[in-house]
Design a protein around this nucleic acid. Structure first.
Length: 254
DNA sequence: ATGGCCTCGGTTCGAGGA
């Protein structure tokens, strides 16, 4: 069983790449963020033709999440019932006995921004929602673009980013509150090479210089963490023409 | 050098991303 998260930065632009990637990576569940499509424009037939069921929650221009699955999808919940939000950032479903949560956590822009306050409130409400969900669904996975680098090891230049958005103490504390639910960072269940990232800025040749951050994560509840045998970042799509600035993160479960 | 790039909407620039 393979669970994947990928911020595609516009599914309209990236659909061919998603379908190409699935051809060589026939995964079970693929969570997408930043689809940037209203629901009436979602490419349902193309995805179904590739052998996947799909649910989605989108809006014009910004945000938008989707879950693709090779197995039946049931019990769909859009957004967080505990948090009034016009932005489409959260989608929860059941697949193969697992509660799958796809999240596009707010970016926050900068620590002195209203968007940062919104990010922290959003994260607080997410923790509350997941705490309740975990009671009913012990097998739960939270996949998405967290817009948080959990530790300095997840940042190309920790000194440059110290205290900045994505790395601030409050954001990292919110990440740790998710981990305390408890949920385990699948990537850190295994020995990993240094300087492995999931996002690189489009500017300054950041990818070629590996000036990136690990901000896309898969968190697993204890029963799923116990089944997890690997967690990898696939850098290949970042090398393609017209790439997303994020790459897929893949968790393998027995 | 307080920017560099990409996407969208809607026009040829501003907002947002991270």
């Amino acid at each position: 069983m393979k669970l994947v998260t990928w911020n595609v930065n516009s599914l309209k632009v990236r659909l061919p790449q998603v379908l190409d990637w699935l051809q060589t990576n026939p995964v079970d569940v693929l969570c997408l963020q930043e689809t940037k499509l209203t629901d009436d424009k979602f490419p349902v037939s193309e995805i179904e033709a590739a052998g996947y069921q799909v649910v989605f929650s989108g809006q014009k221009t910004y945000n938008g999440v989707a879950i693709l699955s090779r197995h039946p999808i049931t019990d769909v919940v859009k957004n967080n019932p505990l948090f009034e939000d016009e932005q489409q950032r959260l989608l929860t479903v059941t697949i193969a006995g697992m509660r799958i949560v796809c999240a596009y956590i707010p970016n926050g822009q900068s620590v002195d921004s209203d968007k940062y306050t919104y990010k922290l409130r959003w994260l607080d409400a997410l923790s509350q929602w997941l705490e309740a969900e975990l009671k009913q669904h012990p097998q739960l996975a939270l996949l998405g673009d967290y817009n948080i680098a959990p530790a300095d090891a997840d940042v190309h230049d920790p000194a440059l980013w110290e205290g900045q958005v994505l790395c601030s103490d409050a954001e990292r504390a919110a990440f740790q509150r998710l981990c305390a639910l408890p949920l385990a960072d699948a990537f850190r269940l295994f020995p990993q090479a240094e300087k492995l990232f999931s996002w690189w800025d489009y500017r300054q040749m950041a990818f070629r210089r590996n000036r990136g951050m690990r901000i896309d994560h898969i968190l697993l509840s204890p029963p799923l963490a116990a089944r997890c045998t690997a967690c990898e970042i696939d850098k290949l799509p970042r090398k393609w023409e017209q790439p997303s600035d994020h790459t897929p993160v893949i968790a393998t479960l027995d």
